[in-house]
Design a binder for these strands. Structure first.
Length: 618
DNA sequence: TTAGGGTTAG
């Protein structure tokens, strides 16, 4: 049942001190230390540091090899180890092998040390198993440590076994045990079991409620988490900052501003909640996700202490709201104040750069990564690929993508969509065919890229097949975007009737984008009457869709129906439907300047022209 | 010697 990763006689666990020469350690021994004297044991008793004891231990192995003396030393050492938590299991484990009598505190200390280590948590279970095999009975300290090890290593089956043992030993009613049980189940995504433990706990404290609430929120049941919070309030239990951070994050997920304001009032009124940097960050994040960027700014400005997460919440929150310029402005401010950005900051900044087309700042982030020896991998690598692709540097995007060690579905998708947008459909499809070999499953967005690639290259049959494969092979339900891509694919290829038929057979109502794709096909192939009927449908669904009016007016003018074209433009004006102007932005001296098509009003226009060498129109 | 916290891409 328990994985055999570690054994106490594993040579890798021989303590450093034991393999070192005793002469090099002699200088740090107590000055009156003489292992040959009878006072040796009393020296040992008065030695308070593990380091000193380790040295005595190492020295005594050579000078006093008597088993009894060794045992005395080991016992004393183990007691000290158990007192200084967490301990290095690599040193403490061999001691266990030397002890004649079982030592529960030392086992507890070792299991805790392993459970809290990043890579060795599963070994905590192995040591626990060894402990049981030696007939040592765990106590109310052991079980939480073992359960923590289970949670960290996602070992739910082992956790269930420990649960059973805790019940048998009468430890399951201990509030620490039940709380760690809940956490173990919640971390392992077994929310029902967590709830069962919660419901059956004879004693529930704030940690019990908070753990259960967090379990719900992490599993995506934010509403249930919030519900439990109010249930807790109903039992007259006062929440603290930790609880509020979790409930605020649930509220952010729900995007419920009313609830968010209610929670903010709770924070202000409740003396139990300390408005520290954690609660402040959670409030900023909540306000942004609930759509009140101004209040988020206010909370942010009033925070007496901010950390990098506070800045990240603002920068990424604004970017998620589509306020990319504001997001970059925040980043500039953060830099001016000398706050060091982290991965999260840079991902958000790259995202804003990608959406604004600000290549220069994007390049700066890339150079920053190089300067700080941060590998462009994972989240950062994906954001960099996306930024380069969206800013028109598809070759740079490919270069970053190729250099990445850890590629996932997001990396492939960013690259496929980028290539498709740049008219390199063939390369995009080649990359898609590479995904199964790399063991990476495509998702819905990958297929948007794949279908766009087919559409741009005119691969009708391939496009049809990929569309079919979505549901038959990959178990993905096509969304409106995919239907839009298919209509575009068929329409561009001149298969207008089939495109119409395709729309008629859609299992979901077509939106303005799907119909817009058909309208685009009418423009390419000069289908005026069909265009008119499609336009009528679009007007019904989205009466203010300016792009469709412009397209229809162009269909008229292409067919030399100038009067109709002008009539439509006039109707647009009457309805106050101005065509959304083309827009570009440029960074100059660290400031993002946005220009609309034909706009020469910006005071920096002349400078920009000079910068662009007059070769590109703004 | 024991349990619960925020920000991350198409």
């Amino acid at each position: 049942m328990f994985p055999k990763v570690l054994t106490t006689n594993n040579p890798s666990f021989v303590p450093m001190a034991l393999s070192s020469s005793s002469s090099s350690l002699a200088s740090t021994l107590p000055h009156d230390f003489n292992p040959q004297k009878l006072s040796f044991l009393s020296t040992l008793q008065t030695c308070k540091s593990i380091q000193g004891l380790k040295q005595i231990h190492a020295s005594s192995i050579k000078t006093m090899p008597s088993p009894d003396t060794q045992l005395t030393i080991s016992t004393r050492l183990s007691a000290l180890c158990a007192q200084s938590l967490p301990i290095d299991p690599r040193y403490a484990l061999p001691l266990l092998a030397q002890l004649r009598t079982p030592n529960l505190p030392l086992y507890n200390a070792i299991i805790r040390g392993l459970a809290t280590s990043n890579n060795d948590s599963i070994e905590g279970l192995v040591v626990y198993k060894q402990m049981l095999s030696k007939g040592i009975v765990p106590d109310n300290y052991t079980i939480p440590f073992v359960l923590k090890a289970c949670a960290e290593s996602r070992a739910v089956r082992e956790g269930e076994e420990v649960h059973g043992q805790a019940i048998k030993m009468g430890l399951a009613s201990d509030v620490y045990v039940s709380n760690t049980l809940m956490r173990m189940y919640a971390v392992c995504d077994v929310i029902r079991s967590a709830r069962k433990v919660f419901d059956s706990s004879p004693q529930r404290d704030l940690v019990s409620w908070t753990t259960m609430i967090q379990g719900y929120v992490k599993m995506g049941f934010a509403r249930e988490g919030v519900g439990l919070f109010f249930e807790m309030c109903g039992e007259n239990l006062q929440a603290d900052g930790m609880t509020l951070v979790i409930v605020l994050s649930a509220c952010a997920r729900l995007g419920d501003l009313r609830l968010g304001r209610k929670l903010h009032r709770y924070v202000i009124r409740n003396s139990n909640v300390n408005l520290d940097v954690f609660v402040g960050n959670a409030l900023v994040d909540m306000y942004l996700k609930c759509g009140d960027a101004n209040f988020a700014r206010k909370v942010f400005q009033e925070m007496p202490i901010k950390n990098v997460v506070s800045w990240n919440s603002m920068i990424s929150g604004l970017a998620q709201k589509g306020e990319f310029k504001e997001s970059l402005y925040m980043f500039r401010k953060m830099q001016r104040l000398g706050v060091k950005p982290d991965d999260v900051t840079l991902v958000a900044v790259l995202n804003s750069c990608a959406n604004l087309g600000v290549l220069e700042l994007g390049k700066w982030v890339h150079a920053y990564l190089d300067r700080n020896q941060i590998r462009a991998d994972g989240f950062i690598g994906n954001a960099l690929v996306d930024m380069y692709a969206k800013c028109g540097s598809i070759d740079q995007a490919c270069w970053v993508f190729q250099a990445m060690n850890r590629k996932d579905v997001y990396s492939y998708t960013a690259m496929i969509v980028g290539l498709a947008m740049h008219g390199q459909g063939g390369k995009a499809l080649d990359l898609f065919s590479e995904m199964p070999k790399m063991g990476i499953e495509p998702d819905e967005v990958t297929f948007v890229g794949v279908l766009t690639a087919c559409s741009h290259v005119g691969l009708v049959e391939e496009g049809r097949k990929y569309f079919e494969d979505m549901s038959t092979i990959y178990n993905l339900r096509p969304q409106l975007e995919h239907y839009g891509c298919m209509v575009d694919l068929l329409g561009r290829a001149g298969l207008i009737n089939e495109a119409e038929e395709f729309i008629r057979n859609m299992p979901i109502e077509p939106d303005a984008f799907v119909l817009g794709a058909l309208l685009g096909a009418c423009k390419i192939h000069g289908k005026v009457e069909l265009g008119e009927s499609v336009m009528k449908k679009i007007e019904k669904i989205e009466p203010r869709k300016d792009g469709a009016y412009v397209l229809m007016s162009n269909i008229y003018s292409s067919a030399n129906r100038w009067r109709d074209s002008l009539k439509l433009r006039k109707a647009m004006k009457e309805r106050n439907l101005e065509k959304t102007p083309g827009c570009s932005s440029i960074e100059l001296d660290g400031v993002i300047h946005e220009f609309q098509k034909g706009d020469k009003s910006h005071p920096k226009t002349k400078e920009i022209y000079k910068l662009l060498d007059g070769s590109r129109a703004i």
